[in-house]
Amino acid sequence: NPVPEGCSQLEIGHTFLHIERITQNVVKSHIETSQFSTEELRRLAWTFYNPEETHSYISRSAETMWQKCAVQITNAIQYIVEFAKRISGFMDLCQNDQIILLKAGCMDVLLIRMCRAYNPINNTLFFDGKFAGAQLFKALGCDDLVSAIFELAKSLSRIQMTEEEMALFSAAVLLSPDRPWLTDVQKVQKLQKKVYVALQRCLQNKGASEEKLAKMVSKLPLMRSICNLHIDKLEFFRLVHPETAYSFPPLYREVFSS
C-alpha cells in the first residue's frame, strides 16, 4: 500500500508491529482460556448421547435441567473472565467498566466459542461430555431459545472462522463501547478499534474475502436477541421456581442479574 501523507516508513513499521502484538496477545489469550482444545473436540466429535441417555435428560424436571445448564454456563464464564483479563488493556480499564463489559458481553463470547463445539454433520453441540441434539434440552421448556442457539451455531460454523479470527472477533465483541453505563467509552472504543484492525489484517493475510468480516458482524443482532431471550427465560424461571433460581451458582446470578 502507498505510504499515507505525513506518515514515515518507521511509523508504519511501528503500527504494523503494534497490530502484530495485539493479534498475538489476543490469540494466545483465547487458546490459553479455551475450555476444550480443538484436538480434544475433534477426538470427541463422534461421542454422542445414545437414545436412552437423551431420554433420561428429556425426562428430567425443568429445575434439574436449568440447574445443570446454569453450572455449565458458569464454568464457561470463568474461562471467559480469564480471557478478558489476559487481553492487553482490559485490566487498565476501571473495574466498573470491566464488570460492565463482562456482564454484557460474556454470553456473546460464549456463543462465538460455541461454534467450535458444534458438529454440523448431525446438528449437535458439545454438552456435558458428549455431543447432543436440540431435543436433549427439551426439559428446559425453552424450545425457541434452544433452536435459536442451534441456528446460530449452524450459521457461525458455516463462516468457518479460524481460531485467530474467532479470538479477535470475541475480543472485539467483548470490547463493545456501546454497552450502557460505561464510564470511559473512549478508552473502550480505542481498544476495540485496535482489535478490529488486527482482525481485518488477519483476514487480509489469510486471503479471506471482505465478505467474511461482514458475515461475522451480521451475526451480532441474532446473538444479542439470544442474550435477551436467555434473560427473559431466566426471569420467568425465577418467578416460577424462586428457590431453585436462588441455588444457581453465585457467578451465574451475578452476571445475569439486571
Binding site: E32, T33, N75, Q78, Y79, V81, E82, K85, M91, Q95, Q98, I99, L102, K103, P250, L251, E254, V255, S257
Partner: peptide
C-alpha cells in the same frame, strides 16, 4: 461492590480456573 462480589474476586485473583 457487594452485588458483583464474585466478579470482583475473579478480576483481582491472580490464580484462575485455567491455571488450576
Amino acid at each position: 461492590k457487594e452485588k458483583h462480589k464474585i466478579l470482583h474476586q475473579l478480576l483481582q485473583n491472580s490464580t484462575s480456573p485455567v491455571d488450576l
